[in-house]
């Protein structure tokens, strides 16, 4: 609250007071009164006014200044109504009441959307739940009727399966609710599960697997991390090179973290595209030109899920040499407490 602005607002009052003082002075001059009264009356009026104005100004100034300070310190600014004190002047009380009402209405509005989103997520979960049975049945029919045609259908069903998984985790990644369950998990189990899941494709594409030093425990949600790893492996398969394709998986233990490396010798990513690989919908030259039909969702989701789980994900790549992904699990017990 600037003093000049404050005084400007009071300009009518001040003009009136000055006008009143002048007329009083004229009257006092016109009638025979003592010199003392001629000076005393205007002075007392003026000083009373000045004192009350100064008190009022400091009071209000203190109050609003406090609000601004708290507001600046707050991360979630809308919480301000919970923190500010009741003002001892009417305008302040009115302001607080207005803020409280606005806040309440805003909360209701936000909750409405939260509810809609939660509801939609639940629908997606149910839908995915439902579609898994016909998928499982199809795979069983294929298994019981093995031939070239069903083998080809099986490949397509595997793709559908992956898209469905993505949809599920996309829905999960967008909600505020906690869907994951952190517990002690062995990296070896996760890696083996993912490799086995992709074994038919890996064998068919003649990709050799080199796994070492993965006997490590981390604290994470095994289902989520399996999904993330599966996305990474599928990328390695998708963007493999033709001659002697290879995927190497290993961990390194450091003082403050355990890092899981997934390294392939595939076609790699252009240097100027590296910064954007985690962006939603980014497909890059590889995704557009090599007939791979990239959706630009996989890595985006990985990053998002990693963030929720408190894992760092890093990607490094040299074109025509290969890609290396690091999943960094912090050692601290912090995520456990979240």
């Amino acid at each position: 609250m600037k003093i000049t602005n404050y005084l400007k607002e009071k300009s009518i009052q001040i003009t009136l007071i000055i006008f009143a003082l002048i007329t009083i002075e004229i009257f006092l001059q016109a009638y025979p009164t003592s010199k003392f009264l001629k000076i005393y009356i205007p002075t007392i009026i003026l000083s009373t006014y000045l004192i009350t104005t100064i008190i009022e100004y400091t009071n209000k100034n203190k109050y609003y200044k406090k609000i601004y300070q708290t507001l600046n310190q707050l991360e979630e600014k809308y919480l301000i109504t919970e923190i500010i004190n009741e003002a001892d002047f009417e305008e302040g009380r009115i302001l607080k009441e207005i803020l409280e009402q606005i806040n309440k209405s805003m909360h209701e509005n936000v909750n409405k959307y939260k509810y809609i989103q939660e509801d939609y997520k639940e629908y997606i979960e149910i839908w995915i739940h439902e579609i898994k049975t016909p998928l499982a049945t199809s795979k069983m029919i294929i298994e019981n009727n093995k031939n070239e045609t069903t083998k080809s259908i099986n490949e397509e069903i595997n793709k559908i399966e992956n898209y469905i998984e993505q949809a599920l985790y996309y829905a999960r990644s967008n909600t505020v609710s906690k869907d994951y369950y952190i517990k002690q998990t062995n990296i070896k189990d996760i890696v083996n599960e993912t490799i086995k899941k992709n074994k038919t494709t890996l064998i068919e594409q003649k990709i050799s697997i080199n796994i070492h030093d993965i006997e490590k425990d981390v604290k994470t949600d095994s289902k989520w991390i399996t999904f993330i790893l599966n996305q990474i492996i599928q990328n390695s398969i998708k963007y493999k090179k033709q001659q002697q394709p290879q995927i190497e998986i290993y961990t390194k233990q450091r003082k403050e973290n355990i890092t899981l490396y997934i390294k392939d010798n595939g076609i790699g990513i252009k240097k100027n595209e590296l910064a954007r690989v985690f962006e939603k919908g980014f497909t890059g030259t590889n995704g557009r030109t090599t007939n791979k039909k990239s959706t630009g969702i996989g890595l985006y989701l990985c990053k998002k899920l990693c963030k929720k789980l408190g894992i760092a994900i890093k990607l490094d790549s040299i074109e025509n040499k290969g890609t290396e992904i690091q999943l960094i699990f912090p050692n601290s017990s912090y995520i456990q407490m979240q």
Binding site: H129, E130, K183, K223
Partner: peptide
């Protein structure tokens, strides 16, 4: 054998005495 793909259901099932927990669509 279930479509429910989350840790909680898996834990519950194992605690209730299941020997294995496989999610659909499973690898036969």
């Amino acid at each position: 054998i279930t479509s429910r793909n989350n840790e909680i259901d898996e834990l519950l099932s194992i605690n209730y005495g299941a020997d294995h927990y496989i999610t659909k669509p499973f690898n036969i």
